[in-house]
Design a protein around this nucleic acid. Structure first.
Lengths: 240, 240
DNA sequence: CGATTAATTGATACTTCTCAAATCCTGTGG
DNA sequence: CCACAGGATTTGAGAAGTATCAATTAATCG
């Protein structure tokens, strides 16, 4: 059974990759881009597949070309906690490589994902010779660190109800809305939402029905539409 | 009123600073160290003073020479959340500078703090010319990112009781124990502990008495001694 | 030694979790 | 296309954990 449906040098060409400007590879010069293109290995993952497993030590990073993935940590009783999402242009596994620690989270494809694998030594090569590249990566890491701090404060101080409102708003801003349906453009199970909020699945279900009852959101299965955004902002006590 | 009691070029000499090997400045060459020594400004802060204020945009970073500080974010109802601590050798404010965002947390001295101020342009100069320095900073940032992820999972999934047990263990491992008393070598108010755990002060008080009742810890005012560490590990469900 | 601030305790209300049972989907193989 | 298995979702009821408010005592700092 083919876990990976593709494993060839270059379905995508880095120098013409439309996603490059999204990623930190925008700072590479022509030579480096050529090297990147030569050594990278493009791979596909099907929905549900684990791209990287928590606790492992990766030998490189993935650059996501298309598709969405979730980063989860295993918590109590096998309950996952969703830390964040990775979308096109995002780099996966760099935290582990750079801190020289095992992966602190698993990465699972939420839909079919195309990604390019870049070996560790190539990444470190860029870091040692291209200061701009390092700075961009530092910028990324530090930004994420700020986001993590915000999340810590939120989870620690807000109620489940407030956190759910915030999560819905965050999903909208990260994934956008579907042009046809107007719904948030990501289909998550109730359990996955619960794993973001950090609560029981039943609690999420009850609160979602409540929001629907109050006409703050509209729900069709896994497709959620935000009707009254100001109300959600109020419920989530989001000020900035 | 002197907010800063010292503001002179060099109470401490970087090249002989015993704390240097603790910090990321261990990777600087002699020239760079000389430059650092020339431009840095050493400063003192008294207990309770704000070293950096959330929302501000710093023009440099502080390297802590001695003393302890807490990093807090303002949350709901003016309630603080303690994100982490900074101790000697730690760099403060680098996240904000490198991500080009306002400070995501305030830094407050928990005891008298001596620190050296390093202007932004000097830090960026090192980053552009010394790849090893960049790598070390990346290493630091990525490590912190992992810690933040761990904290997110913990806060989201563990009960207040479990989190308190964990916090006590964390305090011991970060600050060590006092040789004379055997107590954890940091004096925090009940409120500060509550702000770490993310709960109400009264809840911390009740749980601390409970732990004391069960002879897991001993308490003398703000000085807490861990008596039965295995029990705390069990209560906190700490496995790694 | 006052005056504040911190710590403690009690009572009560509220949120959220857990367990159990029922219903609804969804993809799959016949 | 249909029936079915297994997972996902929903609902209910009761228990547990925490928060909140108020009142009291203890500690700390000029």
């Amino acid at each position: 059974m083919p876990i990976k449906t593709t494993q060839t040098p270059a379905p995508f060409d880095c120098s013409t990759c439309g996603k490059r400007h999204l990623s930190l590879f925008k700072d590479l010069n022509e030579d480096e881009l050529g090297e990147l293109n030569n050594v990278k290995a493009c791979t596909s993952f099907r929905k549900g597949q684990i791209i990287m497993g928590e606790g492992n030590r990766p030998n490189g990073v993935y650059c996501i070309h298309s598709g969405k993935a979730k980063l989860t940590r295993m918590g109590q009783n096998g309950k996952d906690q969703i830390i964040r999402f990775a979308v096109e242009g995002d780099l996966i596994g760099y935290r582990s490589l750079l801190s020289n620690e095992p992966l602190s989270a698993s990465v699972e494809a939420l839909e079919d994902v195309h990604a390019c694998y870049i070996p560790k030594h190539v990444l470190f090569g860029f870091l040692e010779t291209n200061p701009k590249f390092s700075l961009t990566l530092l910028h990324m890491a530090c930004h994420e660190l700020g986001e993590a701090g915000k999340l810590i404060t939120d989870i620690a101080q807000k109620s489940v109800r407030e956190r759910l409102a915030e999560v819905l708003l965050m999903l909208k801003s990260q994934f956008g809305i579907n042009e046809e349906t107007g719904a948030i453009d990501i289909a998550l199970t109730r359990e996955e939402i619960a794993n973001m909020v950090g609560t029981a699945t039943e609690s999420v279900i009850r609160l979602i029905s409540e929001f629907k009852q109050d006409e703050v959101i509209d729900v069709k299965g896994r497709h959620i539409t935000i009707i009254d955004e100001p109300a959600l902002l109020r419920i989530g006590k989001v000020f900035d």
